[in-house]
Nucleic acid binder design. Structure first.
Length: 909
RNA sequence: GGCGCCGUGGUGAAAUGGCAGACACAGCGGACUUAAAAUCCGCUUCGGGGAAACUCGAGUGCGGGUUCAAGUCCCGCCGGCGCCA
């Protein structure tokens, strides 16, 4: 007995056949400007997927969802005459490969190569129209060479706050030099001129050190000693976002705070541009909002307090300077440097103990609103600049050193955290904002002694605030800042929640830094020394001390007699920050991307663009998961802007249009996971139903952006549709061979058929443009249902169907295209044929159905001529006997006629 | 707690403010078949009336509002998801 399952059509033969043909004919190779076959007359279209991390588990059906969507767009744009860039590659550095290496002793490069191989094989079986000659891998020396090169550009650049752009640090160096040589390049730059003036008075012996400090303080890549999230189990530091509830995101190991020397990237300098320049992008508003919130701009003021009985000053950042009269105590972050200097002897013990406790908590734990507030009094007092009151200075872990100035004025009546804290420690609470404008008008009222019953955080009118009384919150803010600024005690500032990017990891499987250390100072390696390859290691285990695994390669670490290499590696984000640029020119040995290739694929122009660019983003369509809504997209935008400012790329933004595909759940409606056992492997779907069915089902499930559960029964339904397409063209003969269907004839389609043909061409094209793939497939199903029983069946109709179905089911349609002999001029694949045109005139009916409503309810339907006037339609409606019944004896108050649609008769009663 | 997104048949879903449920899945019935599978055709939101053709009513999470007309727009709830706290 044969175990061979009867297939509805021979996809198992068709699919490999066409995959081989496309590959050998290089059907989807996109030549660059200057390459043979490049046609500058065609518009470019760059359609990109977020490249995968090639895990050991292989693909699941979630991966091909976005990939299929972009593939359909890419194939469609090609048929529309575009030069299409549609590449794929591997984000292959990362922790899992290293963890696996630790467990098995197998080198990460070996497992990475195996995993990449498996992923590539799986993707090829789905028939994606990738230009495989453009495949990139972040772990190839030829790739990470340029990741390191970009890092050096960051290292060698500073952000000019006046110009709001990055410039080479050599300019800043020149501006600080004893004898500047490039004054003409920076003399108009007030920022550099100011820096020069500022450092000019130094005595010669200190000059050098101060200048170096200024320079390092400006580099976009810099070294910091800040406390970091150290995970002993993983043996590495983690970014804040990699820590969840005090545990590592990977593996759930405990994470502690520990000060360590780390590389940081000064992304905060770009905070304003990262907000502002979202405006020109075609991204979902929700994603823009997520980015804006993440950057967290807040306008406020810095206000200076003095420490009582001392020269020390405390600067606080507040968004509510209008509440200054309600400040009844101050709070410093426990690690604030001032704490040591102001703490009194009696309180020293308690403060020290509290600082130790705090050191073990993560920022997230510390700021959790629900957690009970804790703190300790330092014993010191500050003077409130507005009313010269002595207020106690506390330390509390709900104030972070990293945000604002690391110090706050506490206004318990109008801030929830201050309120809780004040209640707990019995600190005074003074109401200074009222939600009604009546209170406190007239000004100069004495401070209120009665404490409010509840916290009020909203805006209102100032009370008990001396000269501010009666002013609205907005006006009071302006007024108090104006007054204090005049006395040199405040200034308006803008604060961002965004932190600088912690850019080093204590890992093996990542890009080494092109940096060496000598006499405690860092120094960049010259570009010509790139790539810096990781040393061969047999033991990838963490050292346990915080020292990165690379430190074990003592030979490698020793750079020269005096200098040693940096042993940290870059985080996984690094490689994915610029891969879309490398795709434009993946094998260039001289530049991270060729000038012409970059300009063409990012802007569409072959020559230097004459005028201003219309669109800021380069990639025309970028599809990927929401999980990268903030980090990857923010980091990539940051790098891109630096490269743009320095003149290396042509657009200010990397991605013009962004779409997030939804998550595909298991059949049980749960998230797919190995432990739940609900993971669906695309290989199995292909074996059972074919790649075209997989592709079409992925698209037919529902809207691309939506989360939706997998259904094998649904796949079967789509496979049935494809089999029906197959049988429109061919039928099985007595010998069981597929031969051209006897129903096919070279006849003209009838009127109804013509309408379906042209409606389908129209709808499928429009739906692809708007990413409505599910409804495009529905329309093609309607087409097939129309023609299934047509006998004779016009051969011509199939031509159109195959053309519009091709991007969805490329193998099946190519095969039928060939069998039906549509490839007249010989062996030209359907994929390279133009997209069909539709005739709008054929879509218009001579007679239209009009819905007749009485008071909005459908009561009858009539057929009228297409060109019938409003009056004629209304007359026809009134002539309907059903309408007469429903309106009998009632006063007709109004008649609404919507041409071509309906008539609504409004009656009284 | 704040912000954002989403709630439509048994299921996935469709619907420029204009006939709610296209297209599928599942189910039911029929044709073909000795039989089954496959295939083709039909029915399939709920409730009432009718032998039937059909007909009446209700219906897009809940409650209001705007409009001749609301799944769609506005306000307030409830539930789910995501992000931030």
């Amino acid at each position: 007995m044969s175990t061979e399952r009867r297939r509805p059509y021979p996809y198992d033969q068709i699919e490999p056949k066409w995959q081989e043909r496309w590959e050998s004919a290089r059907t989807f190779h996109a030549p660059n400007p200057g390459d043979p076959g490049f046609d500058p007359a065609r518009p470019k279209y760059y359609v990109l997927d977020m490249f995968p991390y090639p895990s050991g588990a292989g693909l699941h059906v979630g991966h091909p969802e976005g990939y299929t969507a972009t593939d359909i767009i890419g194939r469609y744009k090609k048929m529309r005459g575009c030069n299409v860039l549609h590449p794929m590659g591997w984000d292959a550095f990362g922790l899992p490969a290293e963890q696996y290496a630790i467990k098995t002793g197998q080198h990460p490069s070996v497992t990475t190569a195996e995993n990449v191989g498996r992923f590539r094989t799986q993707l090829k079986k789905i028939g994606f129209a990738y230009d495989w000659q453009r495949e990139v891998n972040t772990t190839d020396p030829g790739y990470y060479c340029w990741t390191q090169w970009i890092f050096l550009r960051l290292y060698h650049s500073y952000f000019d706050p006046f110009l709001q752009k990055s410039r080479p640090i050599s300019l800043l160096e020149d501006a600080l030099a004893d004898e500047p040589k490039r004054t003409d390049e920076w003399k108009d730059d007030d920022y550099l001129a100011g820096l020069r003036a500022h450092s000019g008075d130094l005595p010669p012996e200190r000059r050098r050190a101060v200048r170096e400090a200024i320079i390092d303080h400006h580099r976009l890549a810099y070294v910091s000693e800040a406390p970091v999230n150290w995970c002993p189990a993983l043996g590495t530091v983690l970014a804040n976002e990699e820590v969840i509830d005090g545990k590592s995101e990977v593996g759930g190991h405990p994470v502690e705070r520990r000060p360590m020397r780390q590389w940081m990237l000064r992304i905060t300098t770009y905070a304003q541009r990262l907000i502002d320049e979202l405006d020109g992008l075609d991204w979902p508003e929700s994603i823009k909002l997520l980015q804006r919130n993440w950057i967290g701009r807040s306008e406020g003021a810095e206000v200076q307090f003095t420490v009582a009985g001392s020269e020390e000053k405390i600067t606080v950042f507040t968004t509510r300077p209008d509440t200054l009269y309600g400040a009844t105590y101050m709070v410093l972050a426990p690690e604030h440097p001032l704490v040591e200097r102001i703490v009194t002897e009696e309180q020293a013990g308690a403060v020290e103990e509290y600082k130790e406790k705090t050191a073990r908590k993560s920022d997230l734990e510390r700021t959790e609103l629900s957690k009970e507030k804790t703190g300790v009094w330092t014993g010191a007092f500050a003077i409130n600049p507005v009313n010269v009151e002595r207020i106690p200075i506390w330390i509390a872990d709900y104030v972070l050193l990293g945000y604002g100035t690391g110090a706050i004025m506490a206004v318990p009546a109008h801030d929830e955290r201050d309120w809780e804290f004040a209640r707990k420690y019995a600190l005074p609470i003074r109401e200074v904002v009222s939600d009604t404008p009546t209170l406190g008008l007239g000004g100069g009222s004495s401070p209120c002694q009665a404490e409010p019953l509840e916290v009020f955080v909203g805006e209102g009118y100032a009370i008990h605030s001396g000269p501010l009384d009666g002013l609205s919150t907005a006006d009071a803010k302006v007024e108090i800042v104006r007054q204090l600024t005049g006395r040199g005690l405040a200034r308006k500032t803008i604060n961002y929640k965004l932190r600088d990017w912690l850019f080093s990891r204590q890992r093996y499987w990542g890009e080494p830094f092109p940096i060496v250390w000598e006499d405690g100072k860092h120094r960049a390696l010259p570009d010509t020394h790139l790539p810096v390859n990781p040393p061969p290691l047999d033991d990838f285990k963490p050292t346990g001390t915080g020292e990165p695994p690379l430190a074990k390669a003592t030979q490698w670490v020793r750079y020269s007699d005096k200098a040693t290499r940096e042993t940290n590696t870059m985080p996984q984000w690094a490689g994915s920050c610029w891969y879309y640029l490398r795709y434009c020119d993946p094998v260039n040995h001289n530049r991270f991307v060729g000038v012409d290739a970059e300009r063409y694929w990012m802007t569409g122009t072959v020559e230097q663009p004459a005028g201003a660019k219309v669109r800021p983003g380069g990639v025309d369509l970028y599809v990927g998961g929401t999980e990268h809504a903030v980090l990857h997209l923010l980091y990539a935008r940051f790098w891109h802007k630096v490269l743009f400012d320095l003149g290396y790329v042509s657009t200010p933004e990397p991605f013009q249009r962004l779409v997030n595909q939804g998550i595909i759940l298991g059949e049980d409606g749960q998230k797919m996971s190995k432990s739940r056992g609900n993971v669906v492997n695309p290989d199995d779907v292909i074996t059972e139903y074919g790649a075209d069915a997989l592709r079409c089902y992925e698209m037919f499930m529902g809207p691309l952006e939506q989360t939706k559960p997998w259904s094998m029964a649904g796949v079967e339904g789509v496979a049935r549709f494809l089999a029906r397409v197959w049988r429109l063209a061919v039928e099985e003969n007595q010998a069981g061979e597929w031969v051209l269907s006897s129903a096919l004839q070279d006849i003209e389609p009838d009127k109804a058929q013509l309408k379906v043909i042209h409606a389908t061409i129209k709808k499928v094209g429009e739906d692809i443009e708007s990413l409505g793939f599910n409804t495009a497939i529905s329309q093609m199903m309607i087409f097939v249902n129309t023609f299934t029983n047509a006998n004779p069946r016009p051969r011509k109709a199939l031509r159109s169907l195959l053309q519009v179905l091709n991007p969805f089911a490329p193998h099946l349609t190519e095969e039928l295209w060939e069998r039906l002999g549509f490839d007249e001029n010989g062996a030209k694949p359907l994929a390279t044929e133009p997209w069909p045109a539709y005739d709008a005139a054929l879509l218009v009916e001579d007679e239209i159905e009009i819905v007749l409503q009485v008071n909005g309810k459908v009561r009858d339907k009539i057929i009228v001529k297409k060109e019938a006037s409003k009056e004629e339609v209304e007359a026809a409606a009134r002539a309907s006997s059903k309408i007469a019944e429903w309106t009998a004896g009632k006063e007709i108050k109004k008649v609404v006629v919507v041409p071509g649609k309906l008539v609504n008769i409004v009656v009284a009663g």
